[in-house]
Design a protein around this nucleic acid. Structure first.
Lengths: 202, 202
DNA sequence: AGTTGACATGTCAGAATTTACATAGTGAGG
DNA sequence: CCTCACTATGTAAATTCTGACATGTCAACT
């Protein structure tokens, strides 16, 4: 109400809001482009549909954390390009240094918890598939990482260092998944305790 | 409509419902006990509050997947102990072998994506703390695993093998987190690309 | 000429999840 | 005696997220 000396303190922001601000620090983008960008590499650790992104952009805009310019586009509505404002960047910086509390949730691990209730062969197949999937992803990620290193993105000074950091987490966690899935599949297949550690090259 | 030859096909069930069924395969439990049990070891990969568990138990009961018996308890309401029914077990078994599609989401990795937008020292501290936390967890998990192996829980034939399998995933993912957090903290601290792989014992 | 896919933005209903409200007995410690 | 923590079960409001509905252009392929 008082003269616009800044924004009020009420703007707390959701995690998705900060995720979008993070994406927008790479440069201005439309809602559509943001929808594409949450697929890779961020999509391995955070996802959102366009039906969630468009309303969230409106909220960020109302809070003064992003600005938008409209251009006449092909569709029935004008295309809106969003950019982070200084106050949006400040909000993002404040959020970043708060230690996160939310636990990750993994459905495949939940299924392992009840593994003995199901047919061992079918469950073994599930984890064999998972191991193969992680092998494919790992090969893909290794290529991406090589490309990024060649572009100097492994330097914390590079503006897209964050992409490299997220990719590294992807590699680490797929390695973890691979080892675990191989071990679990071996256990379920043989019906006896299996040893850990790279059981064959796959 | 026809005589009760079983349940209708409409009962699809939520992930939480199957998580509760999985817990109940360990034996009958009250809603309160289930609330405690989703803290460890399952809590590292799936969480739920009691306010979500109680209504879900009512839904499972309505679907005929669990049975409950009431006992007069201390509080204002009777204590209800739930147990899985044969049709509940069948539903669980069917769900288990479906390959999960949901991606895990990790807030700490999301923050890494925007790491370069924040103060490097503060971000480095965040990941140093994370590395320390994973070290503590790893020590704790190693003890748990030792105890379980002594009890024969690493045998897929053991009724609580699932607990061991989930713990193994916990160990694998904390190892991954530890390596990644150490690397990232080193990058941010020095401001230059860091090498991977156990930088000091920590 | 018709179909498919990419571009582009939005709404709405419902499910899943969190936070807070609400109640009440029992045992331990100050 | 009073407070605190644990046992024990629910409801209500708000938020977050998914899946479906809705609209319309443009380029490539058939």
């Amino acid at each position: 109400m008082a003269a616009g000396e800044g924004d009020d303190s009420a703007t707390t922001g959701s995690t998705l809001g900060y995720a979008l601000l993070s994406l927008l620090t790479r440069g201005p983008a439309t809602g559509y482009q943001l929808t594409q960008q949450v697929k890779a590499p961020l999509g391995h650790f955070w996802t959102a549909r366009h039906s969630q992104i468009y309303p969230e952009l409106a909220r960020l805009s109302a809070a003064g954390w992003v600005d938008s310019v409209e251009q006449a586009g092909p569709g029935p509505r004008a295309k809106k390009t969003y950019a982070v404002t200084p106050s949006g960047l400040a909000a993002l910086r404040a959020w970043l240094v708060i230690p996160p509390t939310a636990q990750p949730r993994s459905e495949i691990t939940l299924k392992a918890y009840a593994a003995t209730s199901a047919d061992p062969a079918a469950m073994a197949a599930l984890y064999t598939d998972l191991a193969e999937r992680s092998t494919r992803l790992l090969a893909e990620f290794a290529q991406d990482a090589e490309r990024m290193r060649a572009a100097g993105q492994d330097d914390p000074g590079h503006p897209r260092f964050g992409n490299y950091a997220v990719l590294m987490m992807g590699i680490e966690s797929q390695r973890a998944v691979h080892r675990w899935a191989c071990w679990l599949a071996a256990c379920l297949r043989t019906g006896r305790p299996a040893a850990y550690g790279e059981p064959a090259g796959d």
